[in-house]
Amino acid sequence: MPKSLLALLLLVMPVPALAQAAYCSIPQQVPRPRPEPPPAGEPRRLIPAAGYTLALSWSPQYCATARGADSAFQCSGRNGRFGFVLHGLWPEGKGRDWPQYCRPADLLPRQIIRQNLCTTPSAQLLQHEWAKHGTCMTTRPELYFNLARAFHDAIRYPNMTLLTRRKSLTVGQFAAEFARANKGLKADMIRVRTTRGDWLSEVWLCMDRAMEYARCPVHQRGAPAGARLRIQPGPNILPVRSRAAPAPRPSLKLDLDPNARVPAD
């Protein structure tokens, strides 16, 4: 079997991801999402992808203020206690605009929700990510989520418990710690997003068109490196030993799907 084909099969194989969950228990009846049509003011945008962003959310911060049924699986504690979760894999444009809502999105099958709920613990967010971003990368949701999950599973994290206790942590120091945990990742490939009060909200990892980690574009702003950073306490999860991210190659990009090109308007 050719090595590239073997790598592809490993990439798309559904496996549970518990690296940032104290535990994760999926109910027999998984939550069902609502349709996610483009909202008012969010136009369908058919432009080529010039790069990608892997967005990771710090779940304890989200759950500190989240309310409503859509956040119950992630925040109630009945199904798990989560650290970093996968917000999404987003195609980016050359400038400030990005492709979005490229095709109509059917409701995700229950099996796809089940396979991804420990990684992105919200059925509604999974539906949103497929509708807004995934439809601009492939016509098959399983390809989109398998690829996003493969990148998520390869990420290693610093000791968040220790960082939470630091009284004088800056954004730049956190980015350096995050990069140090991942071979091939550098601080300028990371954008740290914060909420009011300098609380850690998300970490964005920038990638080029070949899905190799790359320096973030200037327009993709995050919190300043010298800004104070506070971290909402989360589950005590021991760091996993650093390893390299999956080695993307052109044959593994989602244009392996013959219908994955951005459709003509």
Rank of each mutant, 00 (worst) to 15 (best):
R249G: 08
P2V: 03
L205Y: 00
N116V: 07
E129M: 09
A264R: 09
E129N: 00
E177C: 05
N182H: 07
E36Y: 07
P27D: 12
N259P: 05
F174T: 00
Q20C: 01
L86E: 00
M1F: 11
A227L: 09
T195W: 14
P91E: 03
G184R: 09
K3A: 05
R261K: 12
D257A: 09
K3Y: 06
Y23W: 15
P224W: 10
K167Q: 09
A181P: 08
P235F: 10
S4Q: 12
Q220M: 13
A150I: 07
C63R: 15
G68S: 12
W130T: 06
K186C: 04
L147C: 02
W204C: 07
L46R: 12
G197I: 02
R67D: 07
N159K: 06
Q124G: 03
P39F: 04
P121R: 11
Y213E: 05
P43S: 06
M189Q: 10
A64I: 10
P39C: 08
K253N: 04
R103K: 11
G83C: 08
A7N: 00
A210N: 14
M207Q: 04
A64M: 13
W98M: 09
A181R: 13
R81C: 02
A150N: 14
A247F: 14
L18I: 12
H128Y: 15
G77W: 15
P35R: 06
R191Q: 04
S71N: 13
V15N: 01
G41F: 13
A40T: 03
R67Y: 09
R34K: 14
G184P: 05
A245S: 11
D153I: 11
K94E: 03
Q220N: 05
K253Y: 11
D97V: 04
C102P: 07
L8E: 01
L56F: 11
L169M: 08
N236E: 11
R78C: 12
P43T: 08
R149H: 15
G80H: 10
L107G: 03
R196L: 07
C206K: 06
A72K: 13
A66N: 07
A131Q: 01
A50W: 11
T170E: 00
L125P: 00
C216N: 03
E142A: 08
A225S: 12
